[in-house]
Amino acid sequence: MDFQLTPDQIALRDTARKFAREEMVPVAKGYDQTGEFPLPVIAKGFELGLMNMTLPVELGGLGLSHFEQALVVEELAAGCAGISTSMIANDLALLPILIGGTAEQKERLVKPFSETLRFASFGLTEPGAGSDVSGLATTAVRDGDHYVLNGSKMWITNGGHADQFTIFATVDKKAGRKGITCFVVEGRPEGLSSGHHEDKLGQRASNTVALTLENVRVPVANRIGAEGQGWEIAMGTLDNSRPLTAMLAVGIGRAAMDHAIAYAKERKQFGQPIASFQAIQFMIADMATELHAARLLSYEAAAQLDAGQRNTLVSSHAKRFAADTAMKVCTDAVQIFGGYGYSKEYPVEKLFRDAKLIQIYEGTSQIQRMVIARELLKG
Rank of each mutant, 00 (worst) to 15 (best):
D2L: 07
Q9R: 12
I10A: 02
A11F: 06
L12T: 02
D14S: 10
A16K: 01
A20K: 00
R21G: 06
M24L: 03
V25A: 05
T34P: 03
P40G: 09
K44T: 10
K44Y: 07
L48V: 03
L48N: 05
L50I: 03
T54D: 12
G63H: 09
L64Y: 15
L64N: 11
V73K: 00
V73C: 03
A78N: 02
A78R: 11
A78Q: 10
S84W: 00
S86R: 03
L92K: 10
A93N: 09
A93M: 05
L94D: 06
L94Y: 00
L98N: 01
Q105L: 09
E107K: 15
V110Y: 02
S114F: 04
T116W: 06
A120H: 04
F122K: 07
F122M: 15
G123L: 09
G123T: 10
L124C: 11
P127I: 06
P127T: 07
G128S: 12
S131L: 06
S131A: 10
D132R: 12
D132I: 13
R142C: 01
D143Y: 01
D143V: 12
D145R: 14
H146A: 11
Y147T: 03
L149P: 13
L149D: 12
N158Y: 04
G160C: 03
H161M: 13
A162H: 08
D163T: 15
Q164H: 10
F165W: 07
I167H: 05
T170C: 06
V171L: 01
K173R: 12
A175Q: 06
G179S: 05
G179K: 06
G179F: 08
I180D: 08
C182D: 01
G187Q: 06
S193E: 14
H196L: 07
E198R: 13
K200R: 15
R204Y: 05
T208R: 14
A210P: 13
L213Y: 09
N215M: 04
N215C: 04
V216A: 14
V218Y: 04
P219W: 07
A221G: 04
N222L: 11
N222K: 13
G225P: 05
E227A: 13
E227P: 12
G230H: 01
T237I: 03
D239G: 03
S241T: 12
P243Q: 15
A246H: 05
M247L: 15
G253R: 00
G253F: 01
A255W: 00
M257N: 14
D258A: 00
I261P: 02
I261R: 12
R267C: 04
K268W: 00
K268Q: 03
Q272R: 14
Q272K: 11
S276W: 00
S276Y: 03
Q281R: 15
A285C: 02
A285V: 07
D286R: 14
T289W: 10
E290F: 08
A293M: 13
L296W: 10
L305V: 08
S315F: 01
S316V: 05
S316N: 15
D324V: 09
T331F: 09
D332L: 12
V334I: 13
G338R: 11
Y340S: 08
K344P: 06
K350V: 09
L351V: 02
F352M: 06
I360A: 14
T364L: 05
M370R: 08
L377K: 11
